[in-house]
Amino acid sequence: MKKIATREAYGEALAGLGAENPDIVVLDADLAKSTKTIDFAKKFPSRFFDMGVAEANMLGTAAGLAASGKIAFCSTFAVFAIGRAFDQLRNSVCYPKLNVKIAASHAGITVGEDGASHQSVEDIALTRALPNLTVIVPADAAETKKAVLEAIKIKGPVYLRLGRLAVPALHEDDFVFETGKAITMREGSSAAIIAAGLMVAEALAAADELAGEGIDVRVINMHTIKPLDAEAVIRAAQQTKAIVTAEEHSIIGGLGSAVAEVVCEYCPVPVYRVGVKDSFGESGAPAELMQKFGLTSRHIADAVRKIKGLK
């Protein structure tokens, strides 16, 4: 099966929507070829603005465009969109609830060889803390395309967290993708894995491995981190009594934290967070880094085995 990066699908979706939706404008910060906004730029040059290497100014300009009725998509690497321009995101975009969509690529450690300076493992924690901001982490190309449509439907700021790496397709047929509604990828009752982004594929592989041992795990694709589908989390906690979260992000403040918050408040059961353990990334091939940082299906399966014993 052909793997496609979520950033690739984003570029395609945006370029596809430009004609029917004349309000869409796109901004980039000298990374159009990497974030794939180049597809839109070629088709709609008058509605594309390269702001140069100036992320804070890009967010501020997008806020002004949005305040004037535009749907402003902003793209750069996640580390710069959320890191460099955090104050602008907070005060110029989220506080006034403007219609700005931050679609940032190269999130997580699978950026690979560029190393820690370019690997964002804290953006979910940062964005999740901002009022008015919807946070979506699509797991494959098809979800990304639907997420772009969802983002346009929402009248307000949205963060789309996209990846550099080509990832497998998780959905064979058409499927429903609704902001804030988790997708149960696989039923099961001995434990639940709640994953987002490219970790959903790892979670499914872990579930396969565990099925061989007679352990039936539920796999929940939590593509919307905020608003979190608390009902799906509580149901999983009540029915499986053991939860493992999996994310390509720090275990501090990300999906795992969001899930643990809900579980603690409404239905306390053991939660184990698979993710980057309070460290920066480093240079290496994506697969090597997934291994080194404990983000493979094997690591998830081990976590499930361990947590089952704690029930």
Binding site: D114, G115, A116, S117, S283, G284
Partner: peptide
């Protein structure tokens, strides 16, 4: 350069390589 475990990170890391005065990579 850029290999897993190398001191020669994709962008300079002052903590790993002697002679690098400042970690950089995020421009500006």
């Amino acid at each position: 350069l850029r290999k897993l475990g190398s001191r020669l990170q994709g962008h300079p890391d002052m903590k790993s390589l002697p002679g690098v005065e400042m970690s950089s990579g995020s421009l500006g």
